[in-house]
Design a protein around this nucleic acid. Structure first.
Length: 649
DNA sequence: CCCCCTTTGAAGGCC
DNA sequence: GGCCTTCAAAGGGGG
């Protein structure tokens, strides 16, 4: 445990790191230290926010350290810690990244090209991979450096990406490796591998080039078919749906940051600039001045042509811009022609009006950045495409992240916001509200039904995540979530039509039908391919409560309280944990119990939509997601989590 | 073509 | 200050 704890414990990052990576035994001994560690993410968050407001110097990291620990996030932090610990146990080291030396969220895009969504590093990309993001640098003591090492052989760092369902307790690196080997699924070395630091990169690209498909949609592998396809152009990231003809003509989204127009713009950006907008904060003064000169506030592009002179902020999106951009007017191919024709037809004032009001998107928050980065991985691992399901997984993974890891994203998000603010001083999130947008009709508030709120949360362990079980009964899941796509036959009619779930509404938020087999299957995340599946009988006859037991890493604390990071740090257990620890709640979807759990973290998510508070959810989707790992008829391990099982016993 | 789903976080408005 | 709502990304899928 390196320098982190070094002493003072004043170093937030150090403390966080120390806690996060400390052995359980050590943790017991370090309770006092943990106190300071309480200033975990919440502190970070707070500091970050403050920084954005007051600080313009990139060395603000230390500032966060000095700041008094905001306690508002305490619970969540605890939860996070708990999850972290659980994750560490479960993943057998996946989360055991070495100490995070501090907080400088300086990120160095490592060799795993962020911009090469499909992980297929084009030669060009590789060329630029070595370029480091000057502004962001992360000490990847372990995680990323290891990843880099791994990347030399495989684009899919197991410690990060790992097959989805591999993150199980007791899962050793070896086993993981074995699994990967045995599990010949190509996706393991997923073509979608994205560097952890990618989020911003992708963000940047997409934003700067509206209409760019998500990273995982472009590249050497057809995301839909999984069939490899030839690269569009050596110099063009698969990211861009640009027609070949547009190659070289398109100004780089970050053209103002790109030294030479003639240079392979994209790769540079991908490797050199992971941030959409040059992180002004971390950017040196000259850069900032440059930025200002290039992006005066008044410059909010009236239109978003891809012209270099008017490089829009990534967040700026003109209505319909995606469709438009998909057919770059620069190209000469048929799509371009069609586009041109289309444009002629649509030379209506309406469009003009739209152009007059470019849509400035909200800066991505930490989780969004994380999602952007990890989505491709999850998709590859679970061969899942449905975003809703993926997001569930990502949500859980997010909670499983160490504080350091999350902190990176919070930091990035902070920078995003700050830069966004600088670029669009007058912009308000309110501006994007449906009511304020011409012709833009977006989400209308979900009509929450009275009972739809927080009453029940189905407990479905997420096989892919093997994270603490979700026992929040307060978040009932719709049939879709409950049963997953694989078992639509169990869905109620409305759900099949993607309408409001009647079961969900009727039965106090719980579907009338029993938990899907998938759910039970999910309960038993395989620690290895061979020991994957839960016994069929368990799913049929076992009450959910029993199914839940296995999950509960979260229950372990009862026996070894001090081992739980959250407890150690004085953090409240994660919502899921709380619920689980409440035997009553865990045992039977007791609304009251569930409510308590929900209430505990209510402040954090009270305003959230049902099932959103972190511990949400339904694993059913995940089940379908990880089907490849979940079904093993002969499996004799109903309780996948050995640790959990032990504790339960 | 629009909307839903799903996640977390940020932000704005209301009380 | 708490609560509520909306939006941000993503892409399959329904209407």
């Amino acid at each position: 445990m390196p320098q982190l704890n070094g002493g003072g414990g004043d170093d937030l990052g150090a403390n966080d790191e120390m806690i996060s990576f400390k052995d359980e035994g050590e943790q017991e001994e370090k309770i006092s230290e943990n106190l300071s560690a309480e200033r975990d993410l919440a502190d970070v968050k707070s500091s970050l926010v403050n920084e954005s407001e007051t600080n313009q110097n990139s060395s603000s990291d230390s500032e966060a350290e000095r700041r008094p620990p905001p306690r508002s996030e305490t619970f969540r932090d605890k939860t996070r810690e708990s999850l972290e610990e659980a994750a560490k146990r479960q993943d057998g080291g996946l989360f055991k990244s070495p100490p995070y030396p501090g907080y400088p969220f300086i990120m160095i895009p490592d060799l795993t090209s962020p911009y090469l969504p499909n992980g297929s590093l084009s030669p060009t990309a590789r060329t630029y991979l070595q370029m480091k993001w000057p502004l962001l640098d992360v000490n990847h003591g372990s995680l990323q450096s290891r990843q880099a090492l791994k990347d030399a052989r495989s684009p899919s760092p197991a410690h990060i990406v790992g097959p989805f369902c591999l993150e199980f307790p007791g899962q050793s690196d070896l086993s993981l490796h074995q699994f990967q080997l045995s599990n010949k699924v190509p996706v393991v070395q997923h073509p979608h591998h994205v560097h952890p630091l990618t989020p911003l990169i992708t963000y940047s690209n997409e934003h700067f080039t509206p209409g760019n498909p998500p990273p995982h949609l472009q590249g050497d592998v057809d995301p839909k078919t999984g069939i490899p396809r030839p690269p569009q152009h050596p110099d063009i990231s698969p990211y861009y749906p640009l027609s070949p003809g547009s190659v070289g003509q398109l100004p780089h989204p970050l053209g103002w940051l790109v030294p030479q127009q003639g240079q392979p713009v994209y790769p540079i950006t991908t490797g050199g600039f992971r941030h959409p907008y040059p992180t002004a904060l971390t950017v040196n003064a000259s850069m900032q001045s440059f930025l200002s000169s290039r992006f005066p506030h008044h410059m909010v592009p009236p239109h978003h042509s891809l012209h270099q002179t008017g490089i829009p902020h990534p967040a700026i999106v003109t209505p319909n811009v995606k469709q438009e951009s998909s057919h770059s007017d620069i190209g000469l191919n048929s799509s371009t022609i069609l586009y041109t024709l289309h444009r002629k037809h649509q030379d209506s004032k309406k469009e003009d009006e739209k152009k007059k009001q470019p849509h400035i998107k909200k800066p991505l928050n930490a989780f969004m950045l994380y999602m952007k980065e990890m989505r491709a991985k999850v998709v590859a691992e679970c061969t899942l495409k449905e975003s809703a399901a993926i997001n569930q997984i990502l949500g859980r993974r997010w909670h499983a992240l160490t504080r350091e890891e999350q902190a990176k994203y919070y930091e990035l998000a902070r920078k995003e916001r700050q830069l966004h603010m600088q670029l669009y001083p007058g912009w308000s999130a309110r501006d994007n509200y449906a009511g304020n947008q011409q012709g833009k009709k977006k989400k209308r508030k979900r009509d929450k039904q009275p009972g739809e709120g927080n009453e029940h949360r189905e407990y479905f362990p997420n096989p892919c995540l093997s994270l603490p079980p979700i026992t929040d009964l307060s978040a009932p899941k719709k049939c879709r979530a409950r049963f997953g796509l694989d078992q639509q036959n169990n869905w109620c009619g409305p759900c099949r039509r993607k309408k409001k779930c009647i079961r969900y509404i009727q039965g106090e938020g719980s579907c009338a039908s029993p938990p899907s087999s998938d759910g039970s299957l999910l309960d038993s995340p395989p620690s290895s391919p061979s020991s994957v599946a839960p016994s069929p009988s368990s799913k049929e006859s076992k009450p959910q409560t029993e199914q839940m037991q296995p999950l509960s890493l979260t229950m372990k604390p009862a026996h070894q309280p001090l081992h739980h990071p959250h407890l150690l740090a004085g953090h409240p257990p994660p919502p899921s944990l709380v619920l689980l620890e409440n035997s009553a709640a865990a045992a039977g979807k007791m609304p009251g119990a569930a409510h308590n759990g929900a209430h505990d973290h209510g402040n954090v998510s009270s305003s959230r939509q049902p099932g959103s508070s972190g511990a949400s959810l339904a694993r059913p989707l995940a089940a379908s997601l990880c089907h490849s790992h979940s079904l093993h008829p002969n499996s004799t391990a109903p309780q996948p989590l050995s640790l959990v099982t032990k504790s339960i016993e």
